[in-house]
């Protein structure tokens, strides 16, 4: 067991974890943050994407012990004072989800994408979401929220 101190969604946690524990499993099983979901075991699907010190990572590809001293934001930490994050709102407004399983990772990745390029064109959005799989629609409807800045 290794002692881990980490900020998750604005709260400081101190836990003993097995070195082999993946960040995704730590978030879900230890902290109960089941908003972060696991869709594969090869880092292909992106459903488990969270922010590690402000950048998107696939939490199935990071050991929990690697994030000591860092700040993690999950889908559950995005809303503030009962107000959805603008990207959550954009997904909601544009029906950019169907079954919703890929959505937490998709939103976390979309926020990261706009952090790099606040006004991407559709091709950049598609490229930026390449590491996140969606079986329900997989295409344009997903990209619309990221194109919102261009519409304003």
């Amino acid at each position: 067991m290794t002692r881990l101190t980490v900020m998750v969604d604005g709260v400081r946690y101190v836990d003993d974890v097995e070195p082999r524990t993946l960040l995704a499993h730590y978030l879900r099983e230890k902290l109960g943050k089941t908003g972060t979901v696991v869709g594969c075991d090869t880092s292909n699907c992106g459903a488990c994407t969270v922010h590690l010190d402000g950048r998107s990572v696939k939490s199935c590809s990071v050991f929990a012990v690697q994030v000591g001293g860092s700040e993690i934001t999950t889908i559950e930490g995005l809303a503030r004072d009962g107000q959805l994050h603008p990207m959550q709102q954009a997904f909601h407004d544009n029906h950019a989800l169907q079954c919703g399983f890929c959505t937490p990772g998709m939103i976390m990745q979309a926020i990261d994408l706009l952090g790099d390029d606040p006004d991407p064109d559709e091709q950049s959005v598609r490229a930026g979401l390449e590491g996140n799989l969606c079986r329900c629609t997989a295409t344009r409807t997903l990209c619309v929220p990221c194109l919102m800045p261009r519409r304003r």
Partner: peptide, 19 residues
Amino acid sequence: STLADYLMPSAADLDPERV
């Protein structure tokens, strides 16, 4: 038997000029 081998398309793979 993994999603690295079973190739599901992502948004980047489906970029027609017009749907």
